[in-house]
Design a protein around this nucleic acid. Structure first.
Lengths: 161, 161
DNA sequence: TTTCCTGCAAATAATTTGCAGAACT
DNA sequence: AGTTCTGCAAATTATTTGCAGGAAA
């Protein structure tokens, strides 16, 4: 289970728990209860969560599932194209289903996160492509800045930048 | 030395070692040899470097300057508006003079970093502003993606995304 | 001579890894 | 039976912090 896999070529849908489990099996992997639990957690609550938050939820019912198992399986799911993770400002990464990928605008003053639809990045995407041949993945790292409220406040108090 | 400072209001230029040292003094801080050494390192070699790289350079001549002092003074310089730091893909943050701030496109396959001029982000900047009132700082986190070469290779080998 | 700054060691946070046993197929 | 997975503890990486002594003003 370490070769890159192309989901499109392997029988098994990426949008249901059983479909993803089939993907694991198809790649020589095994269907285990921690994998099933993790997938249920991801599909049941599709918002961005840290590995720790996902682990905590699973552990309320299944306390023996270890955080390192969560990390290992999230990595595996990312390789399979089922989940993606994002780095918001400082602090831990957040994970969510790849189908729900979106950009993030994070205020560096108050920490508020705005979830941005993919089209917000289409201009940047085109410029990076045409100028550098670079294909951006606007979901992986947050775009940091100041939200409206904090921007106004910093002006009022003469705080630079 | 913990209140926010507005460089525009304090006498002392931000673009020379002595000017910045004057800024420290003006804020009630002290001019120390580690601060002078750090500023020389930053002005002499204005490319992006990690705290560790900067420390290593300083330590070739002054082995007693500690890494934690470098971190503390880089933070202080950032508060003064003299340096900024960026998070490239994974790994440590890099620091450079604020006057030379620029965006980064980092290839997640090969790690290559493209330094992007501010105008690459002007479209995104406008959209984020008009849609959300959000003022982006495109320098703090890298924009991740695939460079031209890796993008082609991944297509050739059918590696997803 | 008082406050600030520094070196050193230890703490922290997030994640990764080694290993021996347990669980899939 | 033979791999693959898992739990647990320990390692790692990047950075921060506490503290007591040393240096600037």
């Amino acid at each position: 289970m370490t070769e890159p896999a192309d989901p499109a070529q392997i029988h098994g849908a990426i949008d249901t728990v059983e479909g993803v489990l089939a993907l694991f099996r198809a790649g020589g992997g095994r269907v285990t209860s921690s994998r099933r639990l993790l997938l249920h957690a991801l599909f049941d609550e599709p918002r961005d969560r840290t590995a720790e938050e996902i682990a905590a939820e699973i552990q309320t019912n299944s306390p023996d599932v270890n955080l390192s198992t969560i990390y290992r399986n999230l990595d595996e799911l990312e390789r399979l194209g089922v989940v993606v993770h994002s780095h918001l400002a400082h602090g831990p990464a957040t994970y969510h289903l790849a189908a729900l990928a979106h950009g993030h605008l994070v205020c560096e003053s108050c920490g508020t996160t705005i979830e941005a639809p993919p089209d917000l990045f289409s201009g940047l995407s085109r410029s990076a492509q045409s100028r550098y041949g670079f294909q951006i993945h606007p979901y992986h790292f947050a775009v940091v800045g100041r939200c409206q409220l904090c921007h106004k406040q910093s002006h009022r108090n003469n705080i630079p930048h």
